[in-house]
Design a protein around this nucleic acid. Structure first.
Lengths: 139, 139
DNA sequence: TGTTCATATGAGCAGTTTCTCATAAATTAT
DNA sequence: ATAATTTATGAGAAACTGCTCATATGAACA
């Protein structure tokens, strides 16, 4: 284990800037919360679930049909999304309807899509066609 | 392999709603792009990198010092973020400075934090303290 | 009460991820 | 050129993810 750049190692580190930046960092609570949430959004299946629900509530059963996934897979994912309050259940008899729990999410989708589109613009040629994530993507 | 709810299985599926919703789903390109991007944001280390860079550009070396990570780890993560055009490199001699490549990201961070805060509000008691993601979180 | 339908959950496998170590590549200075 | 410094990358280990299968739980109805 060699943390390489513990401030103090005599590398060419701009100590002033390092300390200043450190002082301005977000609380680790916030960092963790952000990562948890994005992590939940960082899966095609869950994006599709949220996208589907954005058009209105659906029961687990219909949701599975819409996305052509097994009921079990959908249920597992819903539990995760529920835990992060991204979706909300409403029981009606033996059926459970799910809906988006927070309109922020769709706004975030929109903005993120904007970021993505931004990249496909004429100007700057794409340096690296995103090989890294593609792996997971094409699974 | 039992896709359970292929439309046609005679379960209690609302065929009309299923088909309607299907027609309104986002293109799989967009879904994939969203998932790829969120996936990149869904890791504490990368969130911290972006947060640090949001205060101004930093060379790899300083960034590693700020976050107390190895140079190698930072470099690997930067490659990933670069691939998704979340950060951009600028070479100056043998040093490479990285900066945020898109202001959208900080806006997305802000909105996502809003979502998170929303949950900590007085009203609705937290049903499930986010056990699922905690695992990864506490790694 | 017992059966049926809808949803939830536990276990386990196959594929990914992220880190570390070792080493290559790039750039400046001697 | 050679050495020194900074960044990039490949390989491999340990941990994590998302799916399926099997089964439990919950609600409605005979």
């Amino acid at each position: 284990m060699n943390m390489s750049a513990d401030v103090g190692d005599l590398v060419q580190i701009d100590l002033a800037r390092v300390r200043a930046t450190r002082g301005a960092l977000a609380a680790s609570d916030s960092v963790q919360a952000l990562a948890d949430t994005f992590s939940a959004l960082g899966d095609p299946t869950r994006v599709r679930i949220l996208d589907a629900l954005s058009h209105g509530e659906l029961c687990v059963c219909d949701l599975a049909a819409v996305l052509r996934l097994s009921q079990s897979a959908v249920s597992h994912q819903l539990r995760l999304l529920r835990g992060l309050r991204l979706v909300r259940p409403r029981r009606d008899g033996r059926v459970v309807f799910y809906s988006l729990d927070d309109q922020h999410i769709m706004a975030i989708f929109r903005q993120t899509l904007q970021h993505v589109e931004e990249g496909r613009k004429p100007g700057a040629g794409v340096r690296e066609p995103r090989t890294a994530k593609r792996a997971k993507a094409d699974r």
